[in-house]
Simulated scan of single mutants.
Amino acid sequence: MRAGVEAASLSLLLCGGMLLSYLTLTTDTETQREEADLVRVVRSLSAIQQKNEAVLSRLEKEALSVVTKKFPWLPKNNTLPNYLLNSGSHTDNDYKYRDANIAFIHYPRAGGYRVIECLREISIKKHIAMSPLMTSKNRLLWERGEDNLEKFRNRLKFHSGRYVFGVCEKVNSPCSYFLLLREPMQQAISSYEYCKETYEDEICHGFNANKMTLREWILSQGSVLFRQLMLNINFCASDHTFNFNLTLPEGFLFDKKDMPCWMKQKIFLDKLSSTDLSHAVNYIISHLQGWFAVIGLLDDPQGSLEVFEKVYKLPFTKCKHFDRKETLSEPHRASFDNSANSVYQRQSDIYDENDPYTLSDDVYVRKALSADYRIYKAALKIYHMQKQTLSNRIWR
């Protein structure tokens, strides 16, 4: 009897061992299969990444080739890269960015006038020289001034305005750009509402916004930020070859001699092929992080002021022109939701040319704003990367 029990126990042990071996073998096989699947996924993702990088590299080379031939003024040689995304030592960079020339690009109807007033306030309190507002005329003087103006230019540290991009090329010390972003359709709506109430601003020159629909206004204005970053101030001169036989656009109210600089540039760019323009946009996008020391966002005013202050060690958040509870946007800000109710309504049962939601699907409107939307999306990504970097690091 005892022998039978021992035999049964031995049999159970053998079966258990065989079962354990089977389970172990099965588990090992499944693990190996999962590891093999993981390896295949990693290799696949790596191949996709390499393919994407190859495509980006090709696009960048094509863009550089086009820029070199057709837009030789576009490359910039005196810009400090993005402070928060630069891999260098921030201890060393603190002094470099603090002491550098800074240039604020005023993207119209994006809260920029308050940033300019803030710079003026800081310049007075800190005894820092600030150049006159960079209108088209002042920028021409900056570029074409006699050699004896070089010392004067190098004493100025703060620069701002619609025509400021490129001023850094004329100074002999480190220089950086920054700007405040706004969603392009919002910017277009705001400029439309604004120009219905004033004509003094250059962005309103040439057309009567009160006699245009929002759609007509957008088509006449096009991609504003793209033109600012494509600026060659010779577009504004009366003695340069860029001033070819310009055809007056439909709806233009005045003589050709009164055509504003931005319109001359727009007409020039509109004559180029879509391929060349696309390459120019690609080039700009690929250089945003290298051109701009910091990028702000109108929808996050306080956060933008704080990051400006962090980069430049200047008291942006203490400027009297700002209230922590209010937006940076200018007066008469148009809302995307209700702007259609505040503009002239064209009688149409089919298509409302004053409805932003309708216009967002209009192929011609999308084309007119496409360059700005591409730049905006790329810059917005940089803005969020800045915020993430700022929250993940301990700063002095």
Rank of each mutant, 00 (worst) to 15 (best):
D323P: 05
R139I: 14
P174Y: 04
K51Y: 13
Y83H: 04
R393F: 01
A100F: 03
T24D: 10
I124V: 03
K76D: 01
P75S: 00
E250V: 15
S136A: 15
Q347W: 09
S391L: 05
I295F: 00
N101C: 13
Q228M: 13
W142E: 08
E309R: 01
N245S: 08
A280G: 02
E53T: 13
L14D: 08
P132W: 02
H287F: 00
K264R: 15
P72M: 11
A237T: 12
L328R: 02
Q228F: 06
D372F: 02
R33D: 12
R33F: 14
E34K: 01
L248A: 11
D28K: 05
H106M: 07
S65C: 07
E202F: 13
S342K: 01
E117T: 06
M185I: 14
L141D: 11
K266R: 15
Y95H: 08
H279D: 00
A378Y: 05
C175P: 09
I189S: 12
F165M: 07
H106I: 04
T213V: 12
A47R: 14
V363Q: 11
D99G: 09
E34Q: 10
E216K: 15
L156Q: 12
K157W: 03
D28N: 09
N232L: 08
H127P: 00
V115K: 03
Y364L: 12
E150L: 03
F244G: 15
Q302T: 10
K387H: 04
E200T: 13
F336S: 10
A340S: 09
P81T: 00
F165N: 04
Y312W: 14
L181N: 01
S21N: 07
E250K: 15
Y357W: 09
P108R: 11
S131H: 12
S348F: 06
T68C: 03
S329W: 01
C195F: 10
L59T: 04
L288F: 01
E117K: 14
T275P: 00
R374L: 03
M130W: 02
T91I: 09
G161Q: 06
I116E: 15
K325D: 01
I218T: 14
S342L: 08
L156K: 00
V281C: 02
Y113V: 03
L25C: 08
Y22D: 11
Y376G: 07
T26L: 09
T29I: 08
A188C: 06
M134C: 02
G290Y: 03
A188V: 09
L38I: 05
